[in-house]
Amino acid sequence: MARLITRRLLVSVGLVFAVSLATFLLQSAAPGDMARTILGDTYTPDAHERLRHQLGLDQHILVQYWHWLVNALSGDLGTSPISGLNVADEIASRLSVTSSLVICATLVTTIAGVALGVVSAVRGGRVGRAVDVLSLIGYALPSFWFALGMVTVFSVMVNLLPATGYVPLSSSPGEWFRSMILPVTTLALPGVALFAKQTRDAMLDVLSRDFVVALRANGVSERSIVFRHALRNASIPVVTLVGLTLVSLLSGTVFVESVFAMPGLGGLAVQATAQHDIRMIQGVVVVFTLVVVTANLVVDLVYGWLNPKVRVR
């Protein structure tokens, strides 16, 4: 297991470096720059060049990246020239919103999807067909339509849940929970359908194997077969799906935070991109990459625990 962790950590360091460099190069190649955004529509060429020099934008792109990397390795992500805000502080103030969305949506997706998949595989018949129908609905429904529909029903017509905004957990756990219901449901719906389908197929495959037949012949209870033996063997592809789902939910937060007016990292990334704020974009990308790397590392460890063969590869 130690070798597995070491290999994954080495790969993760290279991944963070590669993603940060690629982001820097792509953003620098985009039309426009920070100097024009700061000066506005009316500016003189001399003022534009002076500001570019002050910001270091006239240096070679790799030199700019090197300066940023040296500061980032010391924990300094810099200050946004456009907003004047400290990048690390701004990200920290918004991180709780995005992390709450991603963690809650991942939990809801995993628990609900696995439960539906297990019930469908064990019961079959109408239950199995119902899961198939729900899966198709989850895939087919556009997220924006589903989000707007829930806002219309639960916020406008019933006035039961808030349509927009975010309440910190430390301020009011109850209001935090209410503010998370609609955005988390919007994020989780497509994933629930995918998890249910994947879990059902994996469970059906495991339940048809010879060792399950032998367990039933030896009088082992059906509950023990399903939850102690079949579910553990079927959970290996599901665990991989958890990591992929968490990563996909990070990109989904950009849409959800915009619809429900939540001050998270997704909205910050969109705003920084529109303003060509390279320092803010770099900070957000690094945080997203670290989240992805951490999620993949946890998935690999769980995968190694479930499948010992992975530990020695």
Rank of each mutant, 00 (worst) to 15 (best):
V87H: 00
G78L: 09
L69D: 00
N71R: 15
V70C: 12
L77I: 06
S80N: 10
E90Q: 08
H67R: 04
S83A: 07
N71D: 11
H67D: 06
A92F: 13
Y65W: 13
L69S: 08
L73V: 15
I82F: 13
L69F: 14
A88G: 01
I61A: 05
G84I: 05
L62P: 06
I82L: 15
W66H: 08
L73Q: 10
Q64F: 05
G84W: 05
S80F: 13
P81N: 02
S83I: 03
I82P: 05
G75L: 11
S93D: 08
A88N: 00
S74A: 14
V87M: 01
L77K: 09
I82H: 10
Q64Y: 06
G78W: 10
E90A: 07
S80E: 09
N71E: 11
V87T: 04
N71A: 15
L95F: 12
L62N: 11
N71K: 15
I61H: 05
I61N: 03
L77E: 05
A92K: 12
H60W: 00
H67Q: 04
W66I: 12
L62D: 08
Y65H: 10
I61Y: 01
V70H: 08
S80R: 06
R94Y: 07
W66L: 14
Y65F: 15
G78N: 08
Q64E: 06
L85E: 07
V70A: 14
Y65L: 12
E90K: 04
V70I: 14
A88V: 03
S83T: 15
D89C: 06
S96Y: 06
V63R: 11
L62Y: 10
G78M: 11
P81T: 01
V87C: 01
Y65A: 10
V70T: 13
S80W: 09
T79F: 07
S93P: 09
H67A: 00
D76V: 05
D76Q: 04
L69P: 03
S83L: 02
S80I: 12
A72Y: 02
V63A: 15
P81C: 02
A72D: 03
G75D: 08
T79R: 11
S80P: 12
L62W: 13
L85N: 07
H67I: 00
G75V: 14
H67M: 02
L73H: 10
G78Y: 10
T79M: 10
V63L: 14
G84Q: 09
P81H: 03
L85W: 02
W68L: 12
P81D: 03
W68I: 11
G78D: 07
V87K: 00
L73A: 14
W66Q: 12
V87F: 01
E90V: 06
I91E: 01
A92E: 11
L73D: 05
D76Y: 12
A92D: 09
H60S: 02
I91T: 01
H60V: 00
H67F: 02
P81A: 01
L77H: 07
L62Q: 08
T79L: 04
N71S: 14
A88I: 04
P81I: 02
Q64T: 04
S83V: 04
I82N: 11
V63N: 11
S93M: 05
W68V: 11
L85S: 06
L95P: 03
